[in-house]
Amino acid sequence: MSQPFIPNSPWRSRAAALICGAAVALMMVAQPYAAGYGPFRRTLFAELLMQWQDATWQHGALVPFIVAYLIWHRRAEAARQPCTSSRGGFVLLVFALFCYFAGYRANNFYCGYLAMMCLMAGASLWLEGVQRSRTRLFAWLMLGFMWPLPFLEESIGYQMRLLMVRTTGFVLNSVGVDALVSGTALQSMPEPELGRRAGELFSVGVAAPCSGMRSLFALLVVGALFSYFRQRVMWRRAVLFSTILPIAVVVNMVRVVVLVFAAMAFGQNWAIGDGEDKVSTFHTITGIGMFLVAVLLLQAASWLLDRCCDGRGLKRARTVSRQVAASSAS
């Protein structure tokens, strides 16, 4: 499966890598790709720059620098691996070119994103082989966070908004705060005996930015890096990474509850904003604070994972040592 059918001299390998890098740059920056509708076409790079202006996908602009550091971090380990060549990489290159052309004809940027990922993976396998490519697998997976996927906001984002509103309404009603859930909005119940209308104490509309999608995608990037460097065993990395979604949901729900109580205590405009484009300073601070809380919860999950796994390992080691000591004594 892995054969050196390409000359493996260093200068040929570097030249081939430079040619592949130049090809990727030209396909992303120079070649007009798609626009969705109308005759105007944008390059993949122009589409990325446009999407990165959205706060939900701003983390994508940092991903190339993170990937470059990850490759540099394991450069010595990669250099120790033999430089061979995999025929599967050439097949993957052909598939990547097919996806690129299909997306170009169909005006679909997502096919272009897939083509770039396959092209880089195929070039690595073809030029350097499986063993060296394996050292860059995590960096390649991290590169997937660079590509914006707006369709997720329309599907998963709306469901997360409904989950936020219903869960927060249940929590508020459980602690004695009468809350009315209407779609993706949450407001106080009317109290005719006190002369209060519905929504007079608080009225929170969980918009798309408040659904938790922004914090979720940013936490996925941070959590992937945290899991990779904090844990050394693959299954423990996977377990720690799987805690990101529930942490993001719980933290965002707590934020909505805090905003509701702040609106009841200090007023709607102070806690949330004027309900239009302008949000209050407190609203912004809670977003930053809850993100930091989510990172701390991720650290706590890692600590619990270490305690459980290391504790079992230590207990097993003590049991084995006692058995060895008992057998030697007899």
Score class of each variant (00 low, 15 high):
A207I: 15
Q268K: 10
R105A: 11
L163T: 08
G273H: 03
L141C: 13
T284V: 14
S133N: 07
A238P: 04
A185K: 10
P209C: 09
L216N: 08
Q299V: 00
L314R: 14
A96P: 03
E77S: 13
V206H: 05
G205Y: 00
F217P: 00
F40P: 00
Q299F: 02
V233D: 13
T243W: 13
R214F: 09
Y69H: 08
N269G: 00
V239E: 02
K278R: 12
Q3I: 09
G169Y: 12
P148E: 00
A300M: 07
W140S: 11
R87M: 06
V257F: 11
A17Q: 12
V257Q: 01
N269F: 02
R75K: 14
V251Q: 05
E200L: 01
R87E: 02
A238W: 14
M116F: 02
A102K: 14
M164N: 15
R318E: 05
G223P: 06
M264P: 00
A265T: 12
W147L: 07
A248M: 06
A115R: 03
T284Q: 13
L305M: 10
E191Q: 14
L49D: 09
R232S: 14
A218H: 13
G176K: 06
L180C: 06
T184S: 12
I247M: 04
L245N: 01
V324R: 11
R42G: 00
Q31L: 14
S188W: 04
L137K: 10
L49G: 07
V279S: 05
M160P: 09
E153N: 15
T43P: 00
G88D: 09
M189R: 11
V254Y: 10
G122F: 02
G212V: 08
R12S: 07
S86Q: 12
G21L: 15
T56G: 00
S86W: 14
E153Q: 14
V279N: 03
V324Y: 03
A301G: 02
V293H: 03
V260F: 08
F202S: 09
H59Q: 11
L314F: 01
A76L: 10
Q131M: 11
V204W: 04
V94E: 02
T168E: 12
M264T: 08
P246W: 07
V94P: 01
R230Y: 15
